[in-house]
C-alpha cells in the first residue's frame, strides 16, 4: 500500500527534553479472522513491526499483532540531547517497508 504515514514530531526542543511523538500509518490491518461472503478466510495482512530511530540509535519499537486497530496509531516519547533526524519504519506482512523522517532542532 503506497499510503503516506502521518507523523507529528515537535520542530524544536530544549536539550534533554522528553518530547512526544505521534504516528499513524494508513493500513487495513486485515486480521486473518474475517471471512468473505463465500466463507473463505480473508488472509492476514497487517503492519507487524514499527521502529523509531534517532540518528541511527533505537528510540522505540513495537511488534504488532492483528489485535491492533486499522490505521495503526502509536504515541511514544523520546529524550533529545542534540539536533538530528528521526527515522520511522513500518513493516507489512508482505515485506514492504514504508519509511518517514522528521528533523528536530535542539537548542
Amino acid at each position: 500500500m503506497a499510503d503516506t504515514p502521518k507523523i507529528r514530531v515537535p520542530k524544536t526542543a530544549k536539550k534533554g527534553e522528553i518530547i512526544e511523538i505521534k504516528t499513524l500509518m494508513p493500513h487495513i490491518m486485515e486480521s486473518g479472522q474475517r471471512k468473505d461472503k463465500d466463507g473463505k478466510i480473508i488472509p492476514r495482512k497487517i503492519i507487524n513491526k514499527f521502529v523509531a530511530e534517532f540518528e541511527g540509535k533505537p528510540v522505540f519499537s513495537a511488534t504488532l499483532e492483528p489485535a491492533i486497530a486499522a490505521n495503526p496509531y502509536l504515541q511514544f516519547n523520546a529524550k533529545v540531547e542534540a539536533s538530528g533526524t528521526f527515522k520511522f519504519s513500518w513493516t507489512d506482512d508482505d515485506g514492504t517497508v514504508t519509511t518517514a523522517e522528521s528533523k528536530i532542532e535542539v537548542a
Partner: peptide, 22 residues
C-alpha cells in the same frame, strides 16, 4: 497477543499509546 513495545533510555519514558481491537 496484542503488541509488544520495546523501549530504550532514549525513549525518555516507558509510555506508549495505541488503538486495539477487542
Amino acid at each position: 497477543g496484542v503488541a509488544t513495545f520495546h523501549f530504550t533510555p532514549l525513549s525518555g519514558k516507558a509510555d506508549a499509546s495505541t488503538r486495539i481491537r477487542l
